Amino acid sequence: MLLHLIASADAPENAFGFVQAMEEGGPIAWSILAVLVIMSVGSFYILITKYFEQRKVFNQYKAVRTSFWRANSIKEGATKLEKDSAWRQLVDDAVAAEDQHGKMTDSMEAHDWLHGSLARSEASINSKLAGGLPFLASVGATAPFVGLLGTVIGIYRALIKIGIAGSASIDKVAGPVGEALIMTAIGLLVAVPAVLAYNWLQARNKRIAELMSGFSTDILANINSKGAVRPNTMAPASTQQSGKAARTAPATGSTTAKPVSATATTSTATKPTTPPKR
């Protein structure tokens, strides 16, 4: 529609608009256009759905920082997380791996078994988050060539008309050449957003992978230490209270010191008198 308006801006009666150019190309041009439209719709669908999926994971991580590590145990902290969240999956897999290691009869260390279980859990979550991104990469790589196919066909039709007419007049080649240029533009319009969306979503997935890796390390350390090791996460209220206490500590300490009385000083300073000898 935008290309049609641009093409018909300066000509009130334009016989070489977008629809006319597509009709000039025939079924092949319409088929290529349909493929590009499907690519574009699919790219924007993946971009929107993956954005909200990643946003949900980031928002759920706030519960991990504020409430999970303040629980008395890993199992108790898991109840404070959403059931279908990626963070809850890591905790549940860690707890299940700990229980499974107790049933083993070989000499495999608990650290290795837990580490492998958490690594498998992270891989499954990362694979789910990466779903749809190969489609964006494929669209970004192939859409310009699909548009180029329409360009080649349009130029080929223009050459055929020039050969049949015996002259390269503008009315003979405007339709096929216009179709060729339109196909190139549509291919670029489809490819550029797909490439940008792929790079942006991929960067966000890497950030989520980093957070999950750190969370898995903290879970592993907490389980191996029987709950003694945990990250130092404090709520905003407790942080403010600790800062207030730190600011008031010197003043309080200076007022609690008791002054030494003068009588005590003089009593310790004076020596007892000895009675005179007879």
Rank of each mutant, 00 (worst) to 15 (best):
S138G: 12
V195D: 14
K75R: 12
A245Q: 13
Q89T: 11
S107L: 12
G166A: 09
E122M: 12
L159H: 06
R230E: 08
E53S: 04
R247S: 09
P193H: 08
V41L: 15
L189C: 11
K103G: 11
S67V: 14
A251P: 00
Q241S: 15
A143W: 02
F135G: 02
D106V: 02
E98D: 15
L118E: 00
N59Q: 08
L188Y: 01
D93V: 13
D99I: 13
T270G: 10
P236M: 14
G26N: 02
A71P: 02
I223M: 09
W30R: 04
K83D: 13
G154C: 02
S169I: 08
S67W: 04
L136G: 07
T248I: 08
A137P: 07
R230A: 11
K128I: 02
D106A: 05
P193R: 13
G25P: 00
V192Q: 04
A180D: 03
M108N: 07
M22T: 04
D10H: 08
E24I: 12
A11P: 00
T66G: 02
E179W: 01
I6D: 00
L133S: 01
N205D: 11
P231H: 11
A86D: 06
E23T: 08
A257R: 15
G163A: 15
L3V: 11
V19G: 06
I38Y: 08
A34Y: 06
K271D: 05
N14H: 07
L189T: 03
K206C: 05
A235I: 06
F52V: 06
H101G: 09
S117N: 05
A245M: 14
T233P: 00
S238M: 15
K56R: 14
L2I: 11
N126H: 06
D10M: 14
T105V: 12
P144L: 02
E82A: 14
N72H: 07
S267I: 08
I46Y: 05
G131W: 01
A130I: 05
A158M: 03
K161I: 13
R65H: 03
L2G: 08
L149V: 05
V57E: 08
S127F: 09
N14R: 14
A119D: 10
V177S: 03
K161Q: 14
S107N: 14
A174K: 13
A246F: 06
L118S: 03
T265W: 09
S267E: 13
L220Y: 03
S40V: 05
A168K: 08
S85I: 07
K161T: 11
K161W: 05
R247E: 15
T151G: 01
A245N: 11
R230F: 03
K271I: 06
T233K: 07
S225T: 12
V177Q: 07
P272S: 09
R88P: 04
A96S: 12
M234G: 03
Q54E: 02
K80R: 14
T66W: 01
R278L: 11
Q60K: 01
S43W: 03
L201R: 02
F58L: 13
T248P: 05
P231G: 12
V152G: 02
E53G: 07
H101T: 11
N222H: 10
